[in-house]
Nucleic acid binder design. Sequence first.
DNA 1: AATATTGTCAACCGCCACCCC
DNA 2: CGGGGTGGCGGTTGACAATAT
Length: 259
Amino acid sequence: MGRKPCCEKIGLKRGPWTIEEDHKLMNFILNNGIRCWRLVPKLAGLLRCGKSCRLRWINYLRPDLKRGALSEMEEDQIIQLHSRLGNRWSKIAAHFPGRTDNEIKNYWNTRIKKRLKLQGLDPVTHKPIEQEKDEGLKIEPLDTRRFQEIPAVPQKELQENCRSDSDETVDLLHDYEMLWEELDMGLSSDNPEICSLTKYYSPSISLEVSFNPSCSTGESSSLQEDSGQCWINNVENSVPPSWDGLHDVEDIFHFENHQ
DNA sequence: AATATTGTCAACCGCCACCCC
DNA sequence: CGGGGTGGCGGTTGACAATAT
């Protein structure tokens, strides 16, 4: 007998998220917060496992995410941190509010590694490759004591990142609106960063309209701008499922059995 | 224009630490 | 204390896009 999977895989959807799924997850979390990831997909009406929902939220849907390429300064900071922390991506990401560990890991693997190699540095040890050969590939073990020397996230950032759930939800809604405002501006100003973002959202336009006929007026050009606002409206006006509606664990299994 | 190669990044997998009973 | 459940993390994969041939 192997390890039991984290969730019932049978019948669960995998692969890229559709805009409808994003919408459901976003709606649910913004209105209810997160208490238990395993239950989120059930309550939000998604055929995904909790892990998948968590990942999607953290890496993509969180409204406080920063978008776009990292600056050279950020890149240098990542190299500095990596030399001290190693592949502890979540620890490194903690120094970059709005950036995810997955993003930094990807950035490291696809760009920084290459950059270091071009500079003749080993991306693992951060030492000159020649020097490393001399030392006979002797790799120093990580000195965990040094981790304590890493400057923590500034107090202000910590306070900003560690507020209560309710504050966070209000802020998320606000950030969410800001995101769409940026999107709208980006669509009209050919901002490449926003465009790369909308690349993933663009398929939503028709879907969005099909969900909400009240949004389907107007020409296609204004449709894109409207769709963002419609989504926000949906988030604010819809009556979503909630944790309160779940009185008993038995409810969940009852729910599962009747899917 | 067609095909091959390379780059990017979202998503998955499996392991581990922590918490609760 | 031990076992099960859950969340979090890091490594890896695979689809798609961009670029080269």
